[in-house]
Simulated scan of single mutants.
Amino acid sequence: MLLLTGEYQHVVDGKGRVLVSNKLRNQIDADEHGSNFYLVLGANGVLCLYPERYFEQIVLSVAPGATAPDEAVAFERISFALASKIELDGQGRILLSDKLRKRAGLKDDITLVGVRDHIELWNSEDWEQYLSDHMGQYQKQMTQARQFVLQKQHKEL
């Protein structure tokens, strides 16, 4: 199971490369999930980095007949066209093409965020704004989740 966590600030260098920190990479079991990645424009317009085997499971899990045929074709066409299989260079960096950076609206100061099964690449300013906008909701959900776990543990005693 993947459980990617943390936030890591980086700068896109002059050649369009960004470091994927060791702290994030070390959370991925290369034997189970592969050592390469797929770079994908996510459903919410955020650029996402998926471990290769995990991404393959996602795109292959859309079964024919599960959606309308034209929706399935569109999903398959777009998900494969906009995905790029990438390898980290010797220093742990990935190359972000100008076209992809433009589609995702990425500038030079970015934050990589571990989000369970993938890594999201955010403009650092946008990430801080997202946190500000959603912190109250997060705190409420965290309190509810903790109360649920505590109640469950209490019942087991």
Rank of each mutant, 00 (worst) to 15 (best):
V40S: 02
A145F: 13
F37H: 04
N26C: 11
I28Y: 03
W122Q: 02
S61P: 00
R103Y: 13
L121W: 01
V40K: 01
D70L: 09
L3M: 14
Q91M: 06
G105H: 04
Y50E: 10
I119T: 10
Q129A: 15
I58N: 00
W122R: 01
Y38N: 05
S132K: 13
H33P: 05
A63P: 00
L95Q: 14
K152F: 07
V40Q: 00
D13G: 05
K102A: 14
I119Q: 12
A30D: 12
L157V: 10
K152E: 13
A145D: 11
L88W: 04
L95P: 12
K152R: 15
F80G: 11
A30N: 11
T67N: 13
L150R: 09
G34E: 03
Q9I: 00
A83T: 05
N44E: 15
L19F: 02
I28A: 03
G90E: 08
Q153D: 10
S97L: 04
N22H: 12
E128T: 08
L112C: 01
K15E: 07
L39Q: 06
V62W: 07
K15M: 07
E52D: 11
F75E: 00
R25K: 02
N44R: 12
M135H: 04
Q129I: 14
Q151V: 08
L41D: 09
R17S: 08
Q147C: 05
G14Y: 09
E87N: 13
Q9L: 01
P51V: 05
V11G: 09
R103K: 14
Q147V: 11
V149Y: 13
A104N: 00
